[in-house]
């Protein structure tokens, strides 16, 4: 008898905000899952998928979510866990307060349950031309070398996985503004720092000087604290503030 009681499984409670489709109103559903060592939010969602029964014991539709790499480098599984936007794959149950509250990142359009549509972030990267144009009809030869010191900090910026946490954390990214958000601004700094990318720096700066550009930043600096990759987003924003300010004067004076 004693052994049986000791072996009785611990349960972990989850409170999940769900939504059936883009238009329907969100609702909350609770789940109680057996604890397993090392479990994280994704494995819990997988368990619900395997056995879709809610805390009331009723059979329900499995919760939908988005994930890919399961090692915090792809950015697909971002959701709001216990009030903070973060990657579900890196959210270990052992480190979370219970019950675990899971919501979608509502800054983005909710597709279903925890699945969100981050298209605006990819459009932002297109808008600021976050790439280095080298395609052509003939070999351009090797580009200029990058100083090692610069490469080191530029590498940090390249860790951005377009996960959307910085946009979710920003008080100026909301339905009343069209602010592009910190991620794309940091990518402009990255590609403007590249010796070949620098050749198109004006295009990127002008994209950020358009409506919804860098002027939307209000210096709350939540982004830098929220970024799961520790990217110095506020330094990037201030540096691009400097570059756009210089560009503005250069354009006026016709240099």
């Amino acid at each position: 008898m004693m052994a049986e009681i000791a072996a009785a499984p611990k349960n972990v409670k989850f409170i999940i905000t769900r939504q059936d489709d883009q238009q329907s109103t969100p609702y909350v559903e609770e789940f109680s899952l057996p604890y397993r060592p090392g479990m994280n939010v994704i494995s819990a969602l997988m368990e619900i998928q395997r056995n879709p029964v809610n805390a009331m014991g009723d059979h329900t539709v499995p919760v939908c979510w988005d994930s890919n790499c399961l090692e915090e480098v792809c950015g697909a599984c971002s959701m709001v866990i216990n009030g903070k936007p973060r990657q579900a794959c890196a959210a270990l149950i052992d480190n979370l307060e219970q019950p675990v509250r899971i919501e979608p990142m509502k800054t983005f359009p909710v597709v279903r349950d925890l699945v969100i549509d981050r298209t605006r972030m990819f459009n932002a990267l297109k808008k600021v031309k976050a790439w280095i144009p080298i395609d052509g009809t003939y070999d351009l030869g090797p580009g200029p070398r990058m100083p090692e010191k610069k490469r080191q900090w530029a590498y940090e910026l390249s860790k951005c996985m377009t996960c959307g946490v910085c946009l979710e954390a920003c008080p100026n990214v909301n339905e009343k503004t069209n602010f592009i958000g910190p991620a794309a601004i940091s990518q402009v700094r990255l590609f403007n720092a590249h010796p070949t990318g620098e050749m198109n720096s004006d295009d990127r700066l002008e994209a950020l000087m358009e409506d919804g550009g860098i002027d939307g930043c209000g210096n709350s600096q939540n982004c830098v604290r929220a970024c799961p990759k520790g990217i110095p987003l506020t330094t990037s924003i201030a540096e691009i503030n400097k570059q756009t300010t210089k560009h503005m004067f250069k354009r006026w004076l016709g240099v």
Binding site: G83, A169, P171, K176, G218, N219, S220, N222
Partner: peptide, 23 residues
């Protein structure tokens, strides 16, 4: 500008975020 902001001190109770909101 104040109208356009959506303060989130409940989520990010941080000094810089306080200053943003107080501003």
């Amino acid at each position: 500008i104040a109208y356009q902001s959506k303060p989130n001190l409940n989520r990010y109770n941080l000094e810089r975020n306080w200053r943003y909101t107080l501003q």
